[in-house]
Design a protein around this nucleic acid. Structure first.
Lengths: 219, 219
DNA sequence: ACTCGATGTCTACAGTTGTAGACCTAGTTC
DNA sequence: GAACTAGGTCTACAACTGTAGACATCGAGT
Protein backbone atom coordinates (compact mmCIF):
# COMPACT_ATOMS: atom_id res chain seq x y z
CA UNK A 1 0.00 0.00 0.00
CA UNK A 2 2.98 2.31 -0.32
CA UNK A 3 1.51 4.67 -2.74
CA UNK A 4 2.66 6.02 -5.95
CA UNK A 5 5.74 7.85 -6.70
CA UNK A 6 4.59 5.86 -9.69
CA UNK A 7 4.66 6.72 -13.39
CA UNK A 8 1.52 8.52 -12.71
CA UNK A 9 2.09 11.84 -14.30
CA UNK A 10 3.13 10.72 -17.74
CA UNK A 11 1.72 13.71 -19.59
CA UNK A 12 0.78 12.46 -22.98
CA UNK A 13 -0.04 8.88 -23.83
CA UNK A 14 -1.24 8.46 -27.38
CA UNK A 15 -1.72 4.72 -27.02
CA UNK A 16 -4.26 4.02 -24.33
CA UNK A 17 -3.86 0.29 -24.79
CA UNK A 18 -0.39 -0.15 -23.40
CA UNK A 19 0.18 1.75 -20.26
CA UNK A 20 2.53 0.86 -17.51
CA UNK A 21 1.99 -2.84 -17.07
CA UNK A 22 -0.93 -3.47 -14.82
CA UNK A 23 -2.10 0.12 -14.60
CA UNK A 24 -5.16 0.36 -16.70
CA UNK A 25 -6.54 3.44 -18.28
CA UNK A 26 -9.93 4.55 -17.03
CA UNK A 27 -12.01 2.31 -19.21
CA UNK A 28 -15.14 0.78 -17.82
CA UNK A 29 -15.37 -2.02 -20.36
CA UNK A 30 -11.75 -3.05 -19.97
CA UNK A 31 -11.96 -2.94 -16.20
CA UNK A 32 -15.11 -4.98 -16.24
CA UNK A 33 -13.45 -7.56 -18.41
CA UNK A 34 -10.39 -7.65 -16.18
CA UNK A 35 -12.60 -8.32 -13.18
CA UNK A 36 -14.45 -11.01 -15.07
CA UNK A 37 -11.23 -12.73 -16.14
CA UNK A 38 -9.89 -12.64 -12.61
CA UNK A 39 -13.18 -14.00 -11.36
CA UNK A 40 -13.18 -16.96 -13.73
CA UNK A 41 -9.67 -17.89 -12.72
CA UNK A 42 -10.27 -17.45 -9.03
CA UNK A 43 -13.61 -19.25 -8.96
CA UNK A 44 -12.10 -22.09 -10.94
CA UNK A 45 -9.19 -22.42 -8.57
CA UNK A 46 -10.96 -21.96 -5.25
CA UNK A 47 -14.70 -22.20 -5.83
CA UNK A 48 -17.45 -19.74 -5.10
CA UNK A 49 -17.10 -19.78 -1.35
CA UNK A 50 -13.36 -20.14 -1.45
CA UNK A 51 -12.58 -16.65 -2.74
CA UNK A 52 -13.53 -13.30 -1.39
CA UNK A 53 -14.39 -10.35 -3.53
CA UNK A 54 -11.32 -8.61 -2.19
CA UNK A 55 -9.11 -11.33 -3.63
CA UNK A 56 -10.71 -11.10 -7.02
CA UNK A 57 -10.58 -7.34 -6.99
CA UNK A 58 -6.91 -7.35 -6.14
CA UNK A 59 -6.12 -9.76 -8.96
CA UNK A 60 -7.92 -7.40 -11.30
CA UNK A 61 -6.12 -4.40 -9.88
CA UNK A 62 -9.20 -2.71 -8.50
CA UNK A 63 -11.09 -2.37 -5.26
CA UNK A 64 -13.68 -4.72 -3.96
CA UNK A 65 -16.44 -2.21 -4.18
CA UNK A 66 -16.03 -1.88 -7.89
CA UNK A 67 -17.22 -5.42 -8.25
CA UNK A 68 -20.49 -4.52 -6.65
CA UNK A 69 -20.72 -1.46 -8.84
CA UNK A 70 -20.33 -3.48 -12.01
CA UNK A 71 -21.90 -6.79 -11.14
CA UNK A 72 -24.30 -5.94 -8.38
CA UNK A 73 -22.99 -8.52 -5.98
CA UNK A 74 -20.65 -11.43 -5.67
CA UNK A 75 -23.42 -13.67 -6.90
CA UNK A 76 -23.94 -11.50 -9.95
CA UNK A 77 -20.27 -11.69 -10.72
CA UNK A 78 -20.35 -15.45 -10.38
CA UNK A 79 -23.26 -15.69 -12.77
CA UNK A 80 -21.31 -13.92 -15.47
CA UNK A 81 -18.16 -15.84 -14.68
CA UNK A 82 -19.95 -19.17 -14.92
CA UNK A 83 -21.48 -18.19 -18.20
CA UNK A 84 -18.13 -17.08 -19.55
CA UNK A 85 -16.52 -20.32 -18.39
CA UNK A 86 -19.06 -22.57 -20.07
CA UNK A 87 -19.68 -20.56 -23.21
CA UNK A 88 -16.65 -21.62 -25.27
CA UNK A 89 -17.09 -25.02 -26.85
CA UNK A 90 -14.05 -26.53 -25.25
CA UNK A 91 -15.49 -29.43 -23.30
CA UNK A 92 -17.06 -31.12 -26.29
CA UNK A 93 -14.58 -31.57 -29.08
CA UNK A 94 -15.26 -33.22 -32.40
CA UNK A 95 -18.60 -33.79 -34.04
CA UNK A 96 -20.63 -36.67 -35.29
CA UNK A 97 -18.81 -39.98 -35.23
CA UNK A 98 -15.67 -38.38 -33.90
CA UNK A 99 -17.32 -36.79 -30.90
CA UNK A 100 -16.82 -39.65 -28.47
CA UNK A 101 -13.20 -40.24 -29.33
CA UNK A 102 -12.17 -36.62 -29.55
CA UNK A 103 -13.93 -35.62 -26.36
CA UNK A 104 -12.49 -38.60 -24.51
CA UNK A 105 -8.95 -37.84 -25.58
CA UNK A 106 -9.32 -34.17 -24.72
CA UNK A 107 -10.67 -35.07 -21.31
CA UNK A 108 -7.88 -37.52 -20.58
CA UNK A 109 -5.27 -35.02 -21.65
CA UNK A 110 -6.68 -32.10 -19.69
CA UNK A 111 -7.08 -34.07 -16.48
CA UNK A 112 -3.62 -35.57 -16.62
CA UNK A 113 -1.65 -35.03 -13.40
CA UNK A 114 1.05 -32.98 -15.09
CA UNK A 115 -1.27 -30.70 -17.05
CA UNK A 116 -2.63 -28.33 -14.45
CA UNK A 117 -5.16 -26.72 -16.64
CA UNK A 118 -8.19 -24.76 -15.61
CA UNK A 119 -11.57 -25.51 -16.99
CA UNK A 120 -15.29 -25.09 -16.43
CA UNK A 121 -15.66 -28.43 -14.70
CA UNK A 122 -13.28 -27.33 -12.00
CA UNK A 123 -15.30 -24.19 -11.49
CA UNK A 124 -18.41 -26.27 -11.33
CA UNK A 125 -17.11 -28.88 -8.94
CA UNK A 126 -15.50 -26.43 -6.58
CA UNK A 127 -18.59 -24.25 -6.40
CA UNK A 128 -21.15 -27.01 -6.14
CA UNK A 129 -21.49 -26.70 -2.38
CA UNK A 130 -23.29 -23.40 -2.62
CA UNK A 131 -26.96 -23.73 -3.62
CA UNK A 132 -27.12 -20.32 -5.25
CA UNK A 133 -24.02 -21.14 -7.27
CA UNK A 134 -25.47 -24.52 -8.15
CA UNK A 135 -28.57 -22.95 -9.60
CA UNK A 136 -26.52 -20.51 -11.62
CA UNK A 137 -24.37 -23.31 -12.98
CA UNK A 138 -27.34 -25.46 -13.85
CA UNK A 139 -28.60 -22.66 -16.04
CA UNK A 140 -25.20 -22.00 -17.57
CA UNK A 141 -24.83 -25.66 -18.43
CA UNK A 142 -28.27 -25.80 -19.91
CA UNK A 143 -27.47 -22.76 -22.00
CA UNK A 144 -24.14 -23.91 -23.34
CA UNK A 145 -22.68 -27.43 -23.30
CA UNK A 146 -25.97 -29.08 -22.48
CA UNK A 147 -27.76 -27.52 -25.38
CA UNK A 148 -24.84 -27.91 -27.73
CA UNK A 149 -24.43 -31.54 -26.92
CA UNK A 150 -28.13 -32.26 -27.06
CA UNK A 151 -28.27 -30.88 -30.56
CA UNK A 152 -25.29 -32.96 -31.51
CA UNK A 153 -26.68 -36.28 -30.32
CA UNK A 154 -29.02 -38.27 -32.52
CA UNK A 155 -32.15 -40.04 -31.46
CA UNK A 156 -34.43 -39.96 -28.46
CA UNK A 157 -33.45 -39.03 -24.95
CA UNK A 158 -30.68 -36.84 -26.24
CA UNK A 159 -31.00 -34.44 -23.35
CA UNK A 160 -30.49 -37.07 -20.70
CA UNK A 161 -27.66 -38.68 -22.61
CA UNK A 162 -26.01 -35.31 -23.06
CA UNK A 163 -26.17 -34.67 -19.35
CA UNK A 164 -24.75 -38.10 -18.65
CA UNK A 165 -21.80 -37.30 -20.87
CA UNK A 166 -21.26 -34.17 -18.84
CA UNK A 167 -21.66 -36.21 -15.67
CA UNK A 168 -18.92 -38.58 -16.75
CA UNK A 169 -16.67 -35.68 -17.55
CA UNK A 170 -17.35 -34.04 -14.21
CA UNK A 171 -16.65 -37.30 -12.41
CA UNK A 172 -13.34 -37.77 -14.15
CA UNK A 173 -12.31 -34.20 -13.39
CA UNK A 174 -13.26 -34.76 -9.78
CA UNK A 175 -11.43 -38.02 -9.25
CA UNK A 176 -8.44 -37.20 -11.34
CA UNK A 177 -7.79 -33.49 -10.90
CA UNK A 178 -9.37 -32.54 -7.62
CA UNK A 179 -9.01 -35.65 -5.51
CA UNK A 180 -6.05 -37.04 -7.41
CA UNK A 181 -6.85 -40.66 -6.76
CA UNK A 182 -3.91 -42.93 -7.31
CA UNK A 183 -5.07 -45.53 -9.80
CA UNK A 184 -6.41 -42.99 -12.26
CA UNK A 185 -3.25 -40.95 -11.94
CA UNK A 186 -1.07 -43.92 -12.78
CA UNK A 187 -3.26 -45.28 -15.53
CA UNK A 188 -1.84 -45.27 -19.03
CA UNK A 189 -3.30 -42.19 -20.74
CA UNK A 190 -4.10 -43.93 -24.00
CA UNK A 191 -5.85 -46.78 -22.27
CA UNK A 192 -7.77 -44.33 -20.12
CA UNK A 193 -8.84 -42.37 -23.17
CA UNK A 194 -10.05 -45.58 -24.84
CA UNK A 195 -11.99 -46.51 -21.76
CA UNK A 196 -13.67 -43.14 -21.53
CA UNK A 197 -14.40 -43.26 -25.23
CA UNK A 198 -16.25 -46.51 -24.69
CA UNK A 199 -18.37 -44.79 -22.07
CA UNK A 200 -19.18 -41.93 -24.38
CA UNK A 201 -19.92 -44.37 -27.15
CA UNK A 202 -22.64 -45.89 -25.00
CA UNK A 203 -24.15 -42.48 -24.48
CA UNK A 204 -23.93 -41.40 -28.08
CA UNK A 205 -25.92 -44.44 -29.13
CA UNK A 206 -29.60 -43.52 -29.32
CA UNK A 207 -31.18 -46.47 -27.61
CA UNK A 208 -29.85 -49.25 -25.49
CA UNK A 209 -31.07 -52.70 -26.23
CA UNK A 210 -33.78 -52.34 -23.70
CA UNK A 211 -36.47 -54.79 -22.80
CA UNK A 212 -38.63 -54.92 -25.90
CA UNK A 213 -41.61 -52.68 -26.52
CA UNK A 214 -40.19 -49.82 -24.53
CA UNK A 215 -42.97 -47.33 -25.16
CA UNK A 216 -40.75 -44.32 -25.50
CA UNK A 217 -41.13 -42.82 -28.91
CA UNK A 218 -38.08 -43.00 -31.08
CA UNK A 219 -38.21 -40.44 -33.76
CA UNK B 1 -30.74 -19.35 24.83
CA UNK B 2 -33.40 -19.01 27.52
CA UNK B 3 -31.87 -21.33 29.97
CA UNK B 4 -33.13 -24.24 31.84
CA UNK B 5 -35.76 -24.42 34.39
CA UNK B 6 -35.21 -27.78 32.83
CA UNK B 7 -35.64 -31.25 34.35
CA UNK B 8 -32.25 -30.79 35.72
CA UNK B 9 -32.60 -31.88 39.29
CA UNK B 10 -34.34 -35.18 38.73
CA UNK B 11 -32.92 -36.95 41.75
CA UNK B 12 -32.76 -40.58 40.80
CA UNK B 13 -32.62 -41.96 37.31
CA UNK B 14 -32.01 -45.69 37.20
CA UNK B 15 -32.03 -45.81 33.41
CA UNK B 16 -29.21 -43.66 32.11
CA UNK B 17 -30.09 -44.40 28.52
CA UNK B 18 -33.35 -42.54 28.25
CA UNK B 19 -33.22 -39.17 29.82
CA UNK B 20 -35.19 -36.18 28.88
CA UNK B 21 -35.09 -36.20 25.12
CA UNK B 22 -32.00 -34.44 23.85
CA UNK B 23 -30.35 -34.11 27.20
CA UNK B 24 -27.61 -36.65 27.27
CA UNK B 25 -26.06 -38.16 30.30
CA UNK B 26 -22.41 -37.44 30.78
CA UNK B 27 -20.96 -40.08 28.55
CA UNK B 28 -17.90 -39.30 26.53
CA UNK B 29 -18.38 -42.07 24.00
CA UNK B 30 -22.03 -41.25 23.36
CA UNK B 31 -21.30 -37.56 23.06
CA UNK B 32 -18.48 -38.22 20.67
CA UNK B 33 -20.78 -40.34 18.55
CA UNK B 34 -23.48 -37.68 18.62
CA UNK B 35 -20.99 -35.12 17.39
CA UNK B 36 -19.82 -37.46 14.67
CA UNK B 37 -23.35 -38.18 13.50
CA UNK B 38 -24.18 -34.51 13.41
CA UNK B 39 -20.98 -33.86 11.53
CA UNK B 40 -21.70 -36.43 8.84
CA UNK B 41 -25.14 -34.98 8.28
CA UNK B 42 -23.99 -31.39 8.26
CA UNK B 43 -20.96 -31.96 6.06
CA UNK B 44 -23.13 -33.92 3.65
CA UNK B 45 -25.70 -31.18 3.47
CA UNK B 46 -23.47 -28.13 3.37
CA UNK B 47 -19.91 -29.26 2.70
CA UNK B 48 -16.76 -28.76 4.70
CA UNK B 49 -16.61 -25.01 4.32
CA UNK B 50 -20.35 -24.58 4.48
CA UNK B 51 -20.79 -25.48 8.14
CA UNK B 52 -19.21 -24.01 11.19
CA UNK B 53 -18.23 -26.01 14.19
CA UNK B 54 -20.82 -24.10 16.17
CA UNK B 55 -23.57 -25.44 13.92
CA UNK B 56 -22.41 -29.00 14.27
CA UNK B 57 -22.01 -28.64 18.00
CA UNK B 58 -25.50 -27.28 18.37
CA UNK B 59 -26.98 -30.15 16.38
CA UNK B 60 -25.21 -32.51 18.71
CA UNK B 61 -26.36 -30.60 21.75
CA UNK B 62 -22.92 -29.54 22.88
CA UNK B 63 -20.60 -26.60 22.64
CA UNK B 64 -18.20 -25.87 19.86
CA UNK B 65 -15.16 -26.29 22.00
CA UNK B 66 -16.02 -29.86 22.79
CA UNK B 67 -15.40 -30.70 19.16
CA UNK B 68 -11.85 -29.53 19.47
CA UNK B 69 -11.50 -31.46 22.69
CA UNK B 70 -12.59 -34.71 21.08
CA UNK B 71 -11.39 -34.33 17.50
CA UNK B 72 -8.55 -31.88 17.77
CA UNK B 73 -9.87 -29.53 15.15
CA UNK B 74 -12.54 -29.13 12.53
CA UNK B 75 -10.29 -30.92 10.10
CA UNK B 76 -9.86 -33.83 12.47
CA UNK B 77 -13.61 -34.08 12.82
CA UNK B 78 -14.02 -34.05 9.08
CA UNK B 79 -11.51 -36.85 8.69
CA UNK B 80 -13.54 -39.09 10.97
CA UNK B 81 -16.79 -37.99 9.40
CA UNK B 82 -15.55 -38.76 5.90
CA UNK B 83 -14.33 -42.14 7.00
CA UNK B 84 -17.65 -42.89 8.66
CA UNK B 85 -19.52 -41.77 5.56
CA UNK B 86 -17.56 -43.97 3.18
CA UNK B 87 -17.08 -47.01 5.40
CA UNK B 88 -20.47 -48.69 4.94
CA UNK B 89 -20.76 -50.57 1.69
CA UNK B 90 -23.73 -48.66 0.45
CA UNK B 91 -22.50 -47.19 -2.81
CA UNK B 92 -21.60 -50.51 -4.40
CA UNK B 93 -24.45 -52.92 -4.21
CA UNK B 94 -24.46 -56.42 -5.62
CA UNK B 95 -21.50 -58.59 -6.46
CA UNK B 96 -20.11 -60.36 -9.49
CA UNK B 97 -22.35 -60.29 -12.49
CA UNK B 98 -25.02 -58.38 -10.61
CA UNK B 99 -22.77 -55.54 -9.56
CA UNK B 100 -23.35 -53.31 -12.56
CA UNK B 101 -27.12 -53.66 -12.56
CA UNK B 102 -27.61 -53.44 -8.83
CA UNK B 103 -25.33 -50.48 -8.40
CA UNK B 104 -26.91 -48.68 -11.32
CA UNK B 105 -30.42 -49.16 -10.01
CA UNK B 106 -29.40 -48.07 -6.52
CA UNK B 107 -27.76 -44.99 -7.92
CA UNK B 108 -30.75 -44.05 -10.04
CA UNK B 109 -33.08 -44.51 -7.11
CA UNK B 110 -31.02 -42.57 -4.61
CA UNK B 111 -30.49 -39.62 -6.94
CA UNK B 112 -34.13 -39.36 -7.92
CA UNK B 113 -35.54 -35.87 -7.47
CA UNK B 114 -38.11 -36.94 -4.93
CA UNK B 115 -35.77 -39.04 -2.79
CA UNK B 116 -33.74 -36.47 -0.95
CA UNK B 117 -31.34 -38.87 0.55
CA UNK B 118 -27.97 -38.17 1.99
CA UNK B 119 -24.91 -40.09 0.94
CA UNK B 120 -21.15 -40.04 0.82
CA UNK B 121 -21.02 -38.66 -2.69
CA UNK B 122 -22.84 -35.56 -1.57
CA UNK B 123 -20.36 -35.10 1.22
CA UNK B 124 -17.57 -35.57 -1.26
CA UNK B 125 -18.90 -33.21 -3.90
CA UNK B 126 -19.82 -30.47 -1.50
CA UNK B 127 -16.45 -30.57 0.23
CA UNK B 128 -14.30 -30.90 -2.87
CA UNK B 129 -13.43 -27.22 -2.99
CA UNK B 130 -11.23 -27.44 0.06
CA UNK B 131 -7.83 -28.99 -0.64
CA UNK B 132 -7.40 -30.36 2.86
CA UNK B 133 -10.81 -31.96 2.67
CA UNK B 134 -9.98 -33.30 -0.78
CA UNK B 135 -6.92 -35.07 0.51
CA UNK B 136 -8.85 -36.56 3.39
CA UNK B 137 -11.54 -37.81 1.04
CA UNK B 138 -9.05 -39.28 -1.39
CA UNK B 139 -7.70 -41.38 1.43
CA UNK B 140 -11.13 -42.35 2.68
CA UNK B 141 -12.13 -43.44 -0.80
CA UNK B 142 -8.97 -45.41 -1.24
CA UNK B 143 -9.60 -47.10 2.07
CA UNK B 144 -13.22 -48.03 1.51
CA UNK B 145 -15.14 -48.07 -1.78
CA UNK B 146 -12.04 -47.86 -3.93
CA UNK B 147 -10.46 -50.86 -2.34
CA UNK B 148 -13.69 -52.78 -2.10
CA UNK B 149 -14.50 -52.21 -5.72
CA UNK B 150 -10.99 -52.95 -6.91
CA UNK B 151 -11.12 -56.31 -5.20
CA UNK B 152 -14.47 -56.98 -6.76
CA UNK B 153 -13.42 -56.29 -10.34
CA UNK B 154 -11.71 -58.95 -12.41
CA UNK B 155 -8.77 -58.51 -14.72
CA UNK B 156 -6.11 -55.89 -15.25
CA UNK B 157 -6.47 -52.20 -14.52
CA UNK B 158 -9.04 -52.90 -11.87
CA UNK B 159 -8.00 -49.90 -9.82
CA UNK B 160 -8.53 -47.42 -12.62
CA UNK B 161 -11.80 -49.02 -13.65
CA UNK B 162 -13.00 -48.95 -10.05
CA UNK B 163 -12.24 -45.27 -9.81
CA UNK B 164 -14.04 -44.66 -13.07
CA UNK B 165 -17.11 -46.33 -11.66
CA UNK B 166 -16.91 -44.01 -8.70
CA UNK B 167 -16.40 -41.10 -11.07
CA UNK B 168 -19.57 -41.97 -12.94
CA UNK B 169 -21.46 -42.19 -9.70
CA UNK B 170 -20.12 -38.86 -8.51
CA UNK B 171 -21.03 -37.25 -11.80
CA UNK B 172 -24.58 -38.53 -11.66
CA UNK B 173 -24.98 -37.33 -8.08
CA UNK B 174 -23.65 -33.97 -9.11
CA UNK B 175 -25.83 -33.43 -12.14
CA UNK B 176 -28.94 -35.00 -10.73
CA UNK B 177 -28.98 -34.19 -7.03
CA UNK B 178 -26.85 -31.10 -6.63
CA UNK B 179 -27.39 -29.21 -9.85
CA UNK B 180 -30.74 -30.77 -10.65
CA UNK B 181 -30.39 -30.53 -14.41
CA UNK B 182 -33.67 -30.83 -16.18
CA UNK B 183 -33.25 -33.65 -18.66
CA UNK B 184 -31.89 -36.07 -16.08
CA UNK B 185 -34.64 -35.13 -13.67
CA UNK B 186 -37.34 -35.88 -16.21
CA UNK B 187 -35.75 -39.02 -17.58
CA UNK B 188 -37.60 -42.26 -17.02
CA UNK B 189 -35.95 -43.90 -13.99
CA UNK B 190 -35.86 -47.38 -15.49
CA UNK B 191 -34.32 -46.16 -18.71
CA UNK B 192 -31.80 -44.13 -16.78
CA UNK B 193 -30.87 -47.14 -14.69
CA UNK B 194 -30.38 -49.21 -17.84
CA UNK B 195 -28.22 -46.52 -19.35
CA UNK B 196 -26.02 -46.28 -16.27
CA UNK B 197 -25.82 -50.05 -16.11
CA UNK B 198 -24.41 -50.05 -19.61
CA UNK B 199 -21.74 -47.63 -18.47
CA UNK B 200 -20.83 -49.78 -15.51
CA UNK B 201 -20.82 -52.82 -17.75
CA UNK B 202 -18.10 -51.23 -19.84
CA UNK B 203 -16.05 -50.65 -16.74
CA UNK B 204 -16.57 -54.07 -15.27
CA UNK B 205 -15.24 -55.66 -18.43
CA UNK B 206 -11.52 -56.29 -18.02
CA UNK B 207 -10.26 -55.13 -21.37
CA UNK B 208 -11.91 -53.24 -24.18
CA UNK B 209 -9.00 -52.36 -26.49
CA UNK B 210 -11.44 -52.25 -29.33
CA UNK B 211 -11.55 -49.28 -31.66
CA UNK B 212 -14.90 -47.63 -31.16
CA UNK B 213 -16.67 -49.79 -33.69
CA UNK B 214 -19.59 -51.26 -31.84
CA UNK B 215 -17.61 -53.07 -29.22
CA UNK B 216 -19.49 -52.53 -26.04
CA UNK B 217 -19.92 -55.68 -24.13
CA UNK B 218 -23.49 -55.86 -23.11
CA UNK B 219 -23.87 -59.42 -21.98
C1' DA C 1 -20.05 -36.71 53.05
C1' DC C 2 -16.59 -35.11 50.34
C1' DT C 3 -13.12 -34.93 47.24
C1' DC C 4 -11.48 -35.18 42.48
C1' DG C 5 -11.09 -36.26 37.82
C1' DA C 6 -13.79 -36.43 33.75
C1' DT C 7 -16.97 -33.92 31.07
C1' DG C 8 -18.61 -29.83 29.34
C1' DT C 9 -19.24 -24.50 29.01
C1' DC C 10 -17.96 -19.35 28.85
C1' DT C 11 -15.43 -15.59 27.29
C1' DA C 12 -12.52 -13.85 24.23
C1' DC C 13 -9.66 -12.96 20.20
C1' DA C 14 -7.92 -12.03 15.88
C1' DG C 15 -9.42 -12.66 11.23
C1' DT C 16 -12.34 -12.52 7.34
C1' DT C 17 -16.64 -11.93 4.92
C1' DG C 18 -20.05 -9.11 1.70
C1' DT C 19 -21.55 -4.72 0.93
C1' DA C 20 -23.49 0.09 1.97
C1' DG C 21 -22.49 5.13 1.69
C1' DA C 22 -19.45 8.87 1.39
C1' DC C 23 -15.76 10.35 -0.82
C1' DC C 24 -12.01 11.31 -4.24
C1' DT C 25 -9.97 11.94 -9.09
C1' DA C 26 -8.96 11.56 -13.88
C1' DG C 27 -10.35 13.01 -18.56
C1' DT C 28 -13.23 15.28 -21.36
C1' DT C 29 -16.01 19.32 -22.79
C1' DC C 30 -17.23 23.91 -22.86
C1' DG D 1 -8.81 26.72 -17.55
C1' DA D 2 -12.79 25.48 -14.99
C1' DA D 3 -16.67 22.53 -14.31
C1' DC D 4 -18.86 18.18 -14.74
C1' DT D 5 -19.34 13.26 -14.83
C1' DA D 6 -17.82 8.57 -15.27
C1' DG D 7 -14.68 5.72 -12.99
C1' DG D 8 -12.63 4.20 -8.57
C1' DT D 9 -11.44 4.28 -3.71
C1' DC D 10 -11.94 4.71 1.56
C1' DT D 11 -14.05 3.79 5.79
C1' DA D 12 -17.04 1.27 8.25
C1' DC D 13 -20.11 -2.27 9.92
C1' DA D 14 -22.25 -6.21 11.52
C1' DA D 15 -21.87 -10.97 11.28
C1' DC D 16 -19.29 -14.91 11.29
C1' DT D 17 -15.07 -18.08 11.55
C1' DG D 18 -11.84 -21.59 14.22
C1' DT D 19 -9.83 -22.19 18.44
C1' DA D 20 -7.19 -21.10 22.87
C1' DG D 21 -7.52 -20.81 28.02
C1' DA D 22 -9.93 -20.34 32.15
C1' DC D 23 -13.84 -21.79 34.42
C1' DA D 24 -17.94 -24.68 35.95
C1' DT D 25 -20.34 -29.00 37.18
C1' DC D 26 -21.69 -33.76 37.13
C1' DG D 27 -21.11 -38.27 39.18
C1' DA D 28 -18.58 -41.77 41.02
C1' DG D 29 -14.97 -43.64 44.61
C1' DT D 30 -13.72 -43.50 49.17
Amino acid sequence: MVDTPAPHTSPDRPEPEDRAPGRRRRDAAATRQAILDAAVTAFTRYGYDGVGVRDIAQRAGVTAMLINRYFGSKEGLFAEAADAAFAPRSVITGTGAELAGETARTLAARTAPEAEELGPFLLMLRSAANPAAAKIMREAIGRHPGRHLTEELPGAGAGARAELILAVQAGVWLMRSILGTTALAEEDPAELARRIESLFQVLVTPETDAPPAGGRGVE
